[in-house]
Design a protein around this nucleic acid. Structure first.
Length: 325
DNA sequence: GGTAGACCTGGACGC
DNA sequence: GCGTCCAGGTCTACC
């Protein structure tokens, strides 16, 4: 009999809406079950990986149920709660969301505002690297293969956790390239892992808490991210939002498509990128969220509500060329 | 500071 | 089935 945790979220939290709010919910080891409206997700804990099944049986605003595949020690329960809270952005309160909705009331009615993320900053960074310079189906493949090849197993057959920084730091570039198909990203990912992995008895060179600490301003954090291997302006902008810092955009070819198709702008790629930046300027500290929920609304108009997408079907079908019109 | 080309993978396309 | 082309950000060398 496994442990079941009861987690009290903010009163406006809606599991299907708030999990299926950002593309990472489609990346392994996350598995969204559209029929059951449940998130199946293995977590790395002290005594090994354990697979959690997250549901909100009584609907929005009510407690989240996290059922694990094994019994968890008390310290593991604490750790699991923290990882789940990070994924689901449970620390973003009703007041935080209200502040966003005051700036951009378009999302007040739906209540959108939280963006799904990973249990750790390290996983968010690696996932961002797997999304650079590649089409979405390849990002899906890289994450699936990394979990299959390097992730710790759980009691659930075939379900493995996301590889830890320590494990990735010990992996050979050739293994990553040949078995996980990450291409030229191999060494950069290992270098990133070494920065986040403990060094013997010493702590990691990079402290994840430093990036999340509000005492450090956005410019300082952004510059630090840009100094990391494999992280350029797009990746740094994306990691900023994953840190809960929404003042910057993550401009890529999707932004250019959005400018042409949805905003109706014309011009060269450079001109469009400039206009996109100007367009979201009025949203200030919340500009990424305004940008993102516009994109997400477009995707849902094309493919139906995100909480009905499955990873292998709709979720795997996104490419820029398919979304041109 | 700006720009060109290399870096890999996988899908699309033509034969 | 095979070969070729292309899309997708980051990095490095060069101007």
């Amino acid at each position: 009999m496994g442990t079941t945790l009861r987690i009290t979220p903010p009163s406006d939290f809606d599991l299907p809406r708030d999990v299926c709010s950002y593309g990472y919910f489609l990346l392994a080891p996350n598995h969204w079950d559209p029929a059951a409206q449940a998130l199946i997700r293995p977590l790395e804990l002290t005594d090994g990986a354990s697979c959690a099944r997250l549901t909100q049986p009584r609907g929005a605003g009510t407690p989240v149920r996290a059922a694990f595949d094994r019994s968890l020690a008390r310290s593991e329960q604490h750790d699991a709660r923290e990882q789940i809270a990070r994924m689901l952005r449970l620390t973003e309160t009703e007041q935080d969301l209200a502040a966003f909705h005051r700036v951009d009331p378009r999302w007040q009615r739906s209540g959108q505002g939280r963006l799904f993320r990973s249990p750790t900053l390290f996983e968010d960074i690696i996932k961002t690297v797997t999304s650079c310079n590649v089409a979405w189906p390849s990002t899906i493949n890289m994450n699936r293969r990394m979990c299959d090849v390097l992730g710790r197993p759980t009691a659930v057959k075939g379900v493995r956790a996301f590889p830890s920084a320590a494990k990735l730091a010990r992996t050979r570039p050739g293994t990553l390239r040949a078995r996980c198909r990450v291409g030229y990203r191999d060494q950069r990912m290992i270098d990133l892992a070494k920065l986040f992995a403990p060094r013997g008895k010493r702590p990691p060179e990079l402290d994840a808490a430093w990036f999340e600490d509000p005492a450090n301003d956005d410019d300082t954090v952004f510059k630090k991210l840009l100094s990391l291997p494999g992280i350029g302006p797009y990746a740094a902008g994306n990691i900023m939002q994953l840190l809960g810092r929404y003042s910057r955009l993550a401009i890529d070819t999707e932004s250019v498509r959005h400018a042409r198709v949805v905003l109706g702008y014309e011009g060269t790629e450079r001109e469009l990128m400039k206009r996109v930046a100007e367009h979201y300027e009025p949203f200030g500290e919340h500009r990424f969220r305004s940008y993102w929920f516009e994109l997400w609304e477009f995707y849902e108009k094309k493919r139906g509500p995100a909480h009905e997408w499955d990873r292998e079907g709709v979720g795997a079908s996104f490419t820029a060329s398919q979304l041109q019109d």
